[in-house]
Amino acid sequence: MNIEFSAPWALLLGFAALIPLLGRGQPAISYSSISILPSDPLSTLFDRVLRFSAAAAALSLSLGIAGPYLSERWVERVGTGAHIVLLLDRSSSMNEDFSGQYMGGRAQETKGAVARKLLAEFVNRREHDLFAMIDFSAAPIYVMPFTQDKQAVLAAIEATSGRGHGATNIAPGLAMALDFYSGKPFTGSRIILLVSDGAAQIEEETSDQLRQWFQETQATLYWIYLRNPRSGRLSEKPANPNESTTPEYLLHEYFQSLGVPYRAFEAENPEALQHAIAEVERLENLPLHYLEKLPRQDVSSYCYGAALVFLALLLGAKFLEVRSWPA
């Protein structure tokens, strides 16, 4: 626990705590011969308690004014769930609906809009997962690292509601997603959830590098393929497969050769997309160890509370004070 101060200069006010210890706060009462009064241990104790209370009140107030706080820190949490990277296609074709008709980036019927809505519902249902997010089209865009802050994840998903643009280039997005797991301890499931309506050729050197990274990280890959009626099916081998006419089928074959758990879902409509996300949700949850960053915590209220207690004690003693002896 590391305590810091936002206004450390105010700690100098703490020297005021020495005043009640060095001087007498009660006014003197004239008496003809105080030497004949018997010793009174209870009064002596009461006097010391009041002096201590006054000193403690001054010290507490100076600490409160100095603004003490617990600095931000990392704490280890243990739960069940998965580390999930949302890899969302933001190419121009995501502005189409599931029939292949262009709808515009803001239309609620586009493949991108439906995917965002269902992904947001998916995030809300997952209690203990950590989510990261990447958008991609011609190049990947780093959106956010792993976090359990659902509001931040939902805001990141909503932020992709603009019009998509560019071509579909999956390889750089996959490389960035795998880098999220680099050097991290293996706890819980590692999932890359790829949501895309197309594919592109992956060069041989890049494909070998991706295969190596998948095997090193042991990340599970789920591809939700948003297929329109003009696209081929992943499960049906075309008569003449090639990179220009059937890139999705060849990408599916490549994913099957990665040596890690992989499953593809073909979603031809919003209902099929919802079913695909529900299938992903039924993953087995493994014990999940993760570090959570706690923001700094202001503790000045405790100082002011302590000062209030000591000042109330002094105020009570003030009301009981005898101002003059009866004649």
Rank of each mutant, 00 (worst) to 15 (best):
L21C: 03
Y304A: 00
R51L: 07
P185G: 03
A16R: 09
P270K: 13
R230T: 07
R190F: 00
G232M: 02
E236R: 10
I36W: 08
G162H: 01
P41M: 04
T147D: 01
K318R: 12
R73L: 01
R227W: 11
D89S: 06
Q274I: 00
R282M: 08
A327R: 13
W74M: 11
E216Q: 15
A219S: 15
G112N: 03
G305T: 03
S189Q: 13
K117D: 12
T147F: 10
R211N: 08
S32C: 01
L308Y: 10
Y304R: 05
S6R: 12
L273Q: 04
L59H: 01
H165C: 00
L61T: 05
P326M: 10
Y225H: 11
Q26N: 11
H128D: 15
A58C: 14
F255N: 02
L86F: 03
T160S: 14
G259Q: 01
D197C: 05
I3V: 15
E205D: 14
A307T: 04
S35H: 14
Y304D: 01
L59F: 05
L294N: 10
H289A: 06
R90P: 06
K111C: 06
I202L: 09
S99T: 10
L288V: 09
A7L: 08
G79N: 06
Y249N: 04
T147W: 06
S32A: 14
F46R: 15
I170G: 00
V123F: 06
P41S: 08
A264S: 14
Y142T: 09
I157P: 09
L178S: 02
I170V: 15
L37T: 13
L42Q: 13
C303A: 15
S207N: 04
I157S: 07
L22Q: 02
P20C: 05
G166L: 12
P287A: 07
G188M: 03
D179H: 12
P38V: 13
S196M: 04
R24A: 11
S99V: 01
A17Q: 04
R90Y: 14
S53R: 04
R227Q: 14
E284F: 05
L119Y: 09
G232V: 06
L174T: 05
S137P: 07
A155L: 01
R73F: 02
T220S: 10
L87I: 13
G100A: 05
V260C: 03
N124R: 12
H289V: 01
F46N: 07
S43E: 15
F5Y: 15
K293G: 06
S62A: 15
E109P: 07
A7S: 12
A54N: 10
S30M: 13
A7F: 10
T44G: 12
L178G: 14
Q26T: 08
L314F: 03
A152E: 04
V114H: 10
A171W: 00
S30P: 00
M1N: 10
K117C: 07
L130W: 14
G164P: 08
L87K: 08
G25I: 07
Q212A: 12
R77W: 02
S161F: 09
G188S: 10
L320G: 06
R211Q: 07
P145M: 02
P68N: 02
G104Y: 08
E4T: 15
K318W: 08
G232R: 12
G100M: 06
S53H: 06
E281P: 02
I192E: 02
G67M: 05
F265E: 07
V114E: 09
I224N: 02
E292K: 10
Q151R: 14
H252T: 05
L118T: 11
E205F: 07
G316D: 04
G173H: 09
E4R: 15
F319Q: 12
